[in-house]
Design a protein around this nucleic acid. Structure first.
Lengths: 239, 239
DNA sequence: GGGATTGCTTGACGCAGGTCAAGGCGCGCC
DNA sequence: GGCGCGCCTTGACCTGCGTCAAGCAATCCC
C-alpha cells in the first residue's frame, strides 16, 4: 500500500540497503530486513571516540556502516593489543549477544565512523524465529574465531620481520607490488603488528637496504613483490 | 511402550546421561537428547592419537566424554601452540559446523580418551528446529572466543612468571592454597603456558626458593596463596 | 641387577626485540 | 623567520627466554 514516503521510511529503506550488503544479513527476506531496520540504532563516532569499553554490559552487536573500528584489549600497564580493525560491512561483538557478561574488549573509532547498533533483545527474539539467521551468526562468530586463531600464531610462531612481510604482501595493491599508503602513523602500524615503532623502523630499514621496498613518509612502495613473497615463504618454511 | 531393553537402548540412555551433563545440551528435553544420542558417534582415542588435523574437512563438533583433548596449531617449523585442553563435559569445534572450510587447528588426545562426534548435518537440522539450541551454540562459541581473547593477552602482555602465577592461583583448590596434582607431565604444562619445560622448571624453582610453593613430582603444594596473588597483582600492575 | 628410556633440573650461551636517549626532519603557529 | 612539537630513525644497552648440553632420578623391561 504505497503512500507518500515519510522521512522515517526513507531512513528504513536506506538501512535495509546497508543491512542487505553485509555478510551477516545478506539473503534475508525483505520483511526480516525491515524488522531489523526497525530496531537498529544508528550511532556516529568521531575519530578516537570509544564505542564501548571492556567490562561494560553489552547492549548488542554492531555493524560498521562507514569508517573503521579498532577492537583491542589493554593490559594493566596500558599496553594496547589490537584484536582486529573492522571496516565497512563487517559485524562484530556477536559474542556479546549470547553471554550475560560484559564486553571482553574495547572498541574505538580509528576515523570518523557510523555504526549500527543491533540491540540484544529484539535480535535474539528474531533469531528464535529465524533459525537460518542463527546459523549465520554461528558462521560469523566462527570466522572471528579463525581470525583470533590466526593472530595467535602470528604472535607466537613468527618474528616481526615475517609479520611485516605478511602485512606488506597482503596490502600490495597490484600483483607486481605498487605503493601502499599507510592509514595511520607508523606507530599505529607497529601496534597492529604487535611491536614497537623502533623495531618496525629497523625492520623497514632492512627491507629498504635490500631494495625490496622504498619508504617515504606514509608511502611504502613495494619494488619487488615476488621477492617479498619468496622471503615470506622462506621465513615460514624453515627456521 | 516399554519392551525388554536391547543393547542399543542401553547405549542410548547412557549417552543421554552424558549429553545431559554437558554445558551445551543441559536443559534440553528428553526427546531432543534422544534424537541427538541417535546420531552421535562414539570414538575412542589412544594417548597421542589425533582426532583431526588442520585443514581436514569438518565432520562435526565434539564433546569430551572422558580424557583430555589438546587443541593446537603447529607452525611450519613444527612448533606447537596449545590453544586449549578440553576435558570431560566440554565441547569444541562448534565453529566447524557453520563454516564450509576445514578445521583451523589440530586435536590430539593427551591421554586415552572417549569423545562423542556430533555430525554436522543432523545437528544443523536440529538447530533449525530448536532455536534455543542455536542460542546455546552461540553461547558456547562466545565463551571460546573469550578464551582466545584471554590467551591473546596472556601471550602478549605477560611474561612466563606471571602466566604461571595466574595458573597456580586459578588451580588452587582452597582459598589458602592446598596441593595441585598435575594432570600431565611438566612438559605438557609448559606447552599450555606457551613456554619450554626448562623455563618452567626455572620459574617453579624461583617460587620454591621463595617458599611460596613446594614441588615434588606431579604435586605442587601452594604454601602461601595470598602471597602468590599479591605477586600476580604486582606483576600485572606495574612493569 | 643393569642397561635403556623418559622426565626433570641446572648451567652456559645467543639472540630477538624492548627501552632509553639522542638527534633529524617536517609542520604549524605566533 | 624562529620556535616548539610530533614523528621517525638510529645507536647503545639490557633482558627474558629458547636452545644446547650435561648430570640425575625414576621407571621399565629383558
Amino acid at each position: 500500500m504505497p503512500t507518500t514516503p515519510r522521512p522515517a521510511d526513507f531512513k528504513l529503506t536506506g538501512l535495509t540497503g546497508t543491512l542487505r550488503c553485509c555478510q551477516l544479513f545478506s539473503g534475508l527476506s525483505a520483511e526480516d530486513l525491515m524488522v531489523i531496520a526497525g530496531f537498529v540504532v544508528v550511532q556516529k563516532l568521531a575519530k578516537d571516540e570509544y564505542l564501548f569499553h571492556e567490562g561494560e554490559p553489552a547492549r548488542g552487536c554492531y555493524l560498521v556502516q562507514s569508517g573503521a573500528i579498532n577492537v583491542h584489549r589493554v593490559s594493566a600497564i596500558g599496553k594496547e593489543q589490537v584484536i582486529h580493525v573492522f571496516r565497512s560491512g563487517e559485524s562484530f561483538a556477536e559474542a556479546a549477544l549470547a553471554s550475560p557478561t560484559g564486553y571482553p574488549a574495547n572498541a574505538r573509532a580509528v576515523e570518523p565512523s557510523t555504526v549500527l547498533i543491533i540491540p540484544k533483545a529484539p535480535i535474539l527474539e528474531l533469531i528464535g524465529r529465524r533459525p537460518d539467521l542463527a546459523l549465520r551468526m554461528l558462521g560469523s562468530m566462527s570466522s572471528h574465531l579463525r581470525v583470533l586463531v590466526g593472530m595467535l600464531d602470528d604472535l607466537t610462531l613468527k618474528d616481526v620481520e615475517t609479520r611485516l612481510l605478511n602485512w606488506l604482501v597482503k596490502h600490495s595493491p597490484t600483483s607486481t607490488g605498487g605503493t601502499i599508503r599507510l592509514p595511520g602513523t607508523k606507530r599505529v602500524l607497529a601496534a597492529e603488528l604487535g611491536t614497537s615503532s623502533e623495531t618496525l623502523s629497523r625492520t623497514l630499514g632492512r627491507l629498504r637496504d635490500q631494495k625490496l621496498i622504498a619508504v617515504s613518509g606514509k608511502e611504502i612502495a613495494v619494488r619487488n613483490l615476488p621477492a617479498l613473497q619468496g622471503m615470506l615463504r622462506r621465513n615460514l618454511g624453515e627456521h
